[in-house]
Design a protein around this nucleic acid. Sequence first.
DNA 1: GTCTATACAGTGATAGAC
DNA 2: GTCTATCACTGTATAGAC
Lengths: 186, 186
Amino acid sequence: METVERLISGAQELLWERGYVGTSPKAVQLVAGAGQGSMYHHFAGKAELAKVAIGRSAEEMRAAAEEQLGGAGTARERIAAYLGREREVLKGCQIGRLAADPEVVADPELRAPVAETFEWLRGRLTEVVAEGKQNGEFPETLDPERTAATIAAVLQGGYVLARAAGSPEPFNLAVQGLNDLLNPTT
Amino acid sequence: METVERLISGAQELLWERGYVGTSPKAVQLVAGAGQGSMYHHFAGKAELAKVAIGRSAEEMRAAAEEQLGGAGTARERIAAYLGREREVLKGCQIGRLAADPEVVADPELRAPVAETFEWLRGRLTEVVAEGKQNGEFPETLDPERTAATIAAVLQGGYVLARAAGSPEPFNLAVQGLNDLLNPTT
DNA sequence: GTCTATACAGTGATAGAC
DNA sequence: GTCTATCACTGTATAGAC
């Protein structure tokens, strides 16, 4: 793997763990096995490297979600698959984590990929829910846009509760609770 | 207001905005209008001051939640009141925010008040949902513990989506979506 | 209790040699 | 492209005077 790639994936890893504020160029160089001069040759500075790394993580998150949401099965099945897929719950969401970082939120260049990723996710979930409504899987009264936001929020909030607890349990409970509400035993 | 109090509430403010990793003793002294020596006279260091400040924020969050959850009305009404109460959505949750901080999660002393606050909140919501079941407000099939986790997660995740978007809208959508699911128009 | 002085590592970057 | 040197600044304290 080339130096540039190691710098990017090193930055992705550290941004995930420590956020932008908590990640220093030196720490990135260390995990990437690259020197000071090497990093500043490839990137103008911390912000530029972070921008690239965040973009990379955003792509990964979209691809991972699309794997279930665009897969086979009914709308209900695809949502259940998305909710139930294996996750590193205690690490949290690599993109959602950045919404807590003051400097990411303050810098339009850094916030953009974060905003776009969640816009995409909510839009994609809205489509799947709407599709399920048309097929009679969901009641006519269900609002797809609201429901999509709720689904995304349960996952992001589940990570928060799990990290706070130091255990994946609250995440699993929240997801099961949402599943129950979406699939009432009429 | 005395110096100690100004230091504590200054730390609360900065921890909310920037997290533990992003908050320096010097910055706290600045917003508190206190000198270096003054801070280190009252607190052993950054971690100890943070511990006190987090405990204070935890109390505040509990009190705010209990205002609606322990108020008048049916279980459904109290949950709706809790969900709908006015919030500084773009600032996020002062306690939930800390679950993203690597050094808070890593230090048992700092994580404890965060963990306890969410344990309390989920427990309190569990009680209210259970009460609603007994009164026939919620279906017999509803699991109180799961539902409680889902409610807490929607709020925490709503903050994440809102900060990512730079707008309270996703938070409001997520909460409305949850409300719809909890109050189906049978 | 509060102040100033001092210390020493880390941050984020630039300069110039190789 | 990568390395080492250097820099001004901040982070997190400690020491001792007042």
